[in-house]
Write a protein that binds this DNA or RNA. Structure first.
Lengths: 201, 201
DNA sequence: AGCAATAAATGACCATGGTCAATTTTGGAG
DNA sequence: CTCCAAAATTGACCATGGTCATTTATTGCT
């Protein structure tokens, strides 16, 4: 029988095992040395495979990172989604705390997230771009349920909310702006963005 | 005579020459192969020095990049600063066009700028963090001179303006949001941020 | 079971940024 | 002019991510 496009052979059991082993070892290593300290060589050593095998399973080191970090971000969002809808800005800040903590746990992680926030060039949406999309969607729903400014769409509000979260993290990593904490700064921005108080002119 | 702390020997002429040669070769290479394509080895080959010399002059490759990109950004800002004060949001967009074009000329450049936007960890403010500071200061002055929202400080407005510029660039690099152009998106954000139109609740 | 076709895994090799002990050059003191 | 300490330079070497022709395992067919 001839193979045709629509009849891709099933993935071998071995493949799944190898991949699972690589991921599991990687997760363990991250637990002890952090994301920045992860070395591909240690992963393959721990998984008992050759280096080439790693790159047969993941396009590059970043692709593995995306999977690990994406999963962590997703579970933080699951948590946020499971609870009651936050009804104020301080509420939102506290519901999003685990997610934000995850994003800024390491400078390396934050930089990687930024780099993959816009799905890298091609139309391929990775785990990180995906989780950022979920973030905006979630905030959009919260905005619809609350009372915030009405001159712009909830979606636009939500995009701005995410933008300010990222901006606040950037500033936190900056020596110049270390005096204000992340959440204080976030509150200032979110208040000004979602509840503008004065006439424009 | 004994050397004391306050009498550091003058830098040798040779040092300045070598550094100038490295920078000049690097600039030429960037002109032909772009920032991403720059290789340290090509720079040292072109300058006729050993690899180690490069790293005696620049902490790492990124430090050179910061100098080159920072200079380009600075000259765009000089341009913006030289002209008349923009009196509307479309005006600001057009005055800032060269700067924004520079920032998003290459994905590599944009990522590097983000990475160095908060001066890398230590208190050392590099050329890129510096130029971003200038941007905020410049916008702050423009905001003071114009009529925009008055419920928050001009400085806060200016920080948000920069944040939205970065957010708009991020989205431009994202396949999902390729339908809207950078400047259209920027106008939507800046309008909503600087001239909110409706009561909050 | 035997065989061919495909998938998976291997590891030597490469590319490139970065290090550092050893060497050469420089400028000033005597 | 000579000499020397500090500054500048060198290049062999390292670390690490990534490639690819070759080898090995699996699967479906007869």
């Amino acid at each position: 029988m001839v193979q045709t496009r629509s009849m891709a052979k099933a993935v071998q059991k071995r493949t799944l095992q190898t991949r699972a082993r690589l991921l599991s070892v990687a997760r363990d290593l991250v637990k002890t040395s952090g994301y920045e300290g992860l070395r591909v060589e240690e992963v393959v050593l721990g998984a008992g495979v050759a280096k080439g095998t790693f790159f047969a399973h993941f396009r590059d080191k970043d692709a593995l990172m995306e999977i690990l970090i994406g999963a962590e971000l997703d579970s933080s969002l699951d948590q946020a989604e499971a609870g009651p809808v936050p009804v104020s800005i301080p509420d939102m800040i506290s519901v999003m705390r685990p997610y934000h903590l995850c994003m800024k746990q390491e400078r390396y992680v934050f930089d990687l997230i930024l780099r993959y926030s816009g799905a890298a060039a091609i139309a391929e949406i990775g785990p990180i771009a995906n989780t950022l999309g979920r973030y905006v969607y979630l905030v959009e729903e919260w905005v619809k349920a609350g009372s915030y400014r009405t001159d712009i769409s909830p979606e636009l509000i939500a995009e701005g909310v995410q933008g300010f979260a990222i901006q606040s993290m950037s500033l936190q990593f900056c020596a110049l702006h270390a005096s204000t904490t992340f959440e204080d700064r976030l509150k200032v921005y979110w208040d000004a963005w979602m509840l503008p108080q004065s006439p424009s002119n």
